[in-house]
Amino acid sequence: MEFRHLGRSGLMVSEISYGNWITHGSQVEEDAARQCVRAALDEGITTFDTADVYAGTKAEEVLGRALAGVRRESLEIFTKVYWPTGSGPNDRGLSRKHITEALHGSLRRLQTDYVDLYQAHRFDNETPLEETLKTFDDLVRQGKVLYVGVSEWTAEQIGRALKIADEMGFDRLVSNQPQYSMLWRVIEAEVVPLSEKEGVGQVVFSPIAQGVLSGKYRPGQPPPAGSRATDETGGKNVISRMLTDDVLTRVQQLEPVAADLGLSMAQLAVAWVLQNPNVASAIVGASRPEQVRDNVKASGVKLESEVLRKIDDILGPIVERDPAKTVSPASRP
């Protein structure tokens, strides 16, 4: 496993992070989740990403139990706040009340005194940005949060937050967690240039496009049994928009590219996002330990420019590049 700085901070993170969106507490049983976490640790992954909203807070609980007994200083634990975790009007958003209460809940579920990175899971249009950033800064000063970041914010929103932090003397954002893959490149036009200039690193999710880039979904064929596309608890809805024959036909053409490099298609997909120097880490999820072991082999892989051009030629018009696709709810959900 290789390691990179998270943005311009001193924090080092593993190039491959383990994330439990959709899986822990939902798609896979706890014993399987524990096996996946153990495989991640065995393969040198030190960075673990979750969120309070995943599986209605159950994902944090599962991860906390899976990591119990592991030396805390050897881990980087990330979580997030924004989406509803209760039925009350203040059980959502980025107000001082919700952020503070949500963090205490996350710490309890994760069985830790602090998180290494606390992330605003979306932009809250109903809370003054100054209030959100001051609350984050207070939690850093209390030692409950070491670094702060955001997830799926636009370049304009990130820029505003950095300006306020500089003016008010708050801790700056060190990271953004966007969706990023060969198929979904909406951060490249605006978010990445700003982030490179300001020292913000990307911790990207869905580098394998929820499994589409693994090659297991075939055009004209039903999805494999037990795959994310058959998961009625949430995975199916997330992945369905990419399971078109046009997308799947082009993805199949990546198979010989990966084979020539001695990589699986999933390894090629993860290695591809890591070619972007602004990416600090790629988050992978898994329902089986062997998926973790396969994905980590992408760490340290260097793709030549000719390979990158070939990938671009194959995927062509199915790549999404519009930065306007990064959207937070207009009002709290």
Rank of each mutant, 00 (worst) to 15 (best):
W272M: 11
G105L: 12
S151D: 02
D246E: 15
G226T: 00
T47H: 01
P207E: 15
E15F: 02
H24A: 11
L94N: 00
R4C: 04
D245Q: 13
G10H: 02
V53P: 04
A259D: 15
V150Y: 03
Q35I: 11
S106E: 11
D166Q: 13
E15A: 02
G199N: 07
E61Y: 08
F78W: 10
E190L: 07
E167Y: 08
A229V: 01
L243C: 08
M168G: 12
A66I: 08
D113N: 08
S195Y: 09
I187P: 08
G220K: 13
R141L: 11
G215F: 02
E126M: 01
E255F: 10
A330K: 12
D313P: 08
P222Y: 05
L248V: 10
R250W: 04
S305C: 11
V145G: 11
S281M: 13
E43Y: 05
E131D: 01
A68L: 05
Q179S: 13
G149K: 05
E43I: 06
H5Y: 11
G169C: 13
Q210L: 08
Q267Y: 01
L41K: 05
T154P: 02
G262D: 05
P317M: 11
T50R: 05
M1C: 07
I314A: 14
Y18I: 05
S14N: 02
V192C: 06
S328H: 03
S264D: 08
M265A: 13
K134W: 05
P289R: 15
H98E: 00
E61R: 14
T230N: 09
L162D: 14
E61F: 05
G226L: 01
D113Q: 14
P128V: 00
N125F: 02
R241A: 15
E2A: 12
G149N: 06
N125C: 04
P128I: 00
I314Q: 14
H104T: 12
T230C: 06
E156S: 11
E101G: 13
M1D: 05
V81C: 00
V200D: 01
V186W: 10
L11T: 02
S74G: 04
S17I: 04
I164Y: 02
T132H: 00
Y147A: 11
D313A: 13
V203S: 09
R71H: 06
G234M: 04
A189C: 09
